[in-house]
Structure formats: C-alpha cells, structure tokens
Design a protein around this nucleic acid. Structure first.
Length: 219
DNA sequence: GCGACAG
DNA sequence: ATCTTGTCGC
C-alpha cells in the first residue's frame, strides 16, 4: 500500500491529487462482486471517530466492526475532504481482522473537481476496489431520476459522465454514486441498490454512520 | 466578479 | 459535519 502524504497547504494537496490520479484504474466491464464489503464514515468531534463496518452482501448482516478515534489534522475544504478523513479511515480499516475487499465511502469518487475524490484516494492508497455514495450534490448536474426505487440518471460534469444519481427508495431523495478505483459505474449502481434494504443510504455506510456517532457519544 | 461548495 | 424538540405523516 502507498503511504498517506499530509499536505502543508491547499496547493500541495491539489498536487498530490493530480499525482495520485495517474494510478487510477476504472475497468470498462463488470468485476466479480466480493462476499463482503466495507462501509466507511467519520463523525466529527473531540476527538473525531472513524468507523469501518464489514457487511455480508447476500444478507446485509454486519460481520465485523472497527473504529479509530483521533484528531482530524486537515481543515474541511470542498474538494479536499480526503485529507481530513483518510488518516482516520486508514487507522480504522487497519484494525479489521479480515482484509477488506471493497470499500464504500460516504462522499464522492470521480465526481470531483479534479476527478479524485475520497473514494479514489482510499482506493488508490490501498489498491482496493472502492466507490462513493454521497447524500448531497457536489459537482455536475443531472436530470431528476424517475420516482421509483432503481430509477437513475447520469451525473454529468464538463460533458463527462462522472457518476449516477440513484433512487434507492421510491419517493425518497436520491443518492449520488461515483466510482473510486477498480470498479465501473454500473457495478457501483447495482451494488448500491443491492445494499439498500429499506433505507435511503446503503447498509454499510449507514451502519458506519450509526457506529461512529455512538462511539463519539460514549467518549 | 459573484456564488456555490462531499463531510 | 454540528448546534437542537417536537411534530407531521406513512
């Protein structure tokens, strides 16, 4: 795995993204789906808490969890979220007993100003398939997806399809899916729907959100 | 130039 | 993200 580099400035952070982006691999065809996936999230506080939750794809059951509490070292800057979250998330992932097979992040992958969001960053550093599921818009635009679960619309930025707006529950606000590394957009969308039981947010990141919040409360 | 801007 | 209760509705 590649080491995380802590940038000393916004300009340096952008250079790091441009450099790591050259290692991105996005396959054109479907990849084999793993038996389990890892949902990731960070809740901010003092300290902040990162959570990694392993979920079995077939049953949506939680198989293992790990957390890490520490200070976020980089400020929140739109487009540079990874520098705030990656160190904490890597520490949580390292505490899992089983090696992760696919990462699902709370945020964006390729749908990013420099095409290198959080999901790309984690995927490249760990050389693992990864993608992002965000709750609100960031870059690009789309037609509104149809009203039924499974309806979706391309997310387009600068004439490029960078992600997909996916309705995971009928009549509920859609989520924003974008590929991170070593997985194509179709697979990301399919997996997101498969992992969304009765909630808007797919189970892995939903559980990571719940866990990181509860751990922070208990500190 | 102005506003918007993942978490 | 977070500060924060009740409330409307399926």
């Amino acid at each position: 795995m590649l080491p995380f580099t802590e940038p000393a400035s916004v300009a340096e952070a952008e250079l790091i993204q441009d450099s790591l982006r050259s290692r991105l691999v996005i396959p054109a065809s479907a990849v084999e789906l793993p038996r389990t996936v890892v949902g990731l999230d960070v809740t901010y506080g003092e300290p902040s808490v990162a959570a990694a939750v392993v979920v079995e794809v077939a049953t949506l059951e939680v198989v293992e969890v790990a957390t890490f509490a520490g200070e976020a070292r980089f400020p929140y800057v739109p487009g540079l979220l990874a520098f705030r979250e990656v160190p904490l998330l890597l520490a949580a992932i390292e505490r899992l007993s089983t090696p992760p097979s696919l990462l699902i992040c709370d945020g964006y992958g390729l749908a990013h100003p420099r095409r290198f969001g959080l999901a790309c960053h984690l995927g490249v550093l760990l050389d693992l398939p990864s993608y992002g599921v965000a709750k609100t818009a960031f870059v690009g635009s789309s037609d509104p997806p149809g009203p039924a679960r499974g309806d979706a619309a391309d997310l387009v930025d600068a004439g490029e399809i960078v992600g997909r707006v996916v309705r995971t529950q009928s009549g509920v606000k859609p989520v924003y899916v974008s590929a991170g590394h070593r997985i194509g957009l179709d697979d990301c969308s399919d997996l997101t729907l498969r992992l969304s039981g009765r909630y808007r947010i797919p189970e892995p990141t939903r559980q990571a959100d719940i866990l990181s919040r509860s751990v922070l409360r208990s500190l």
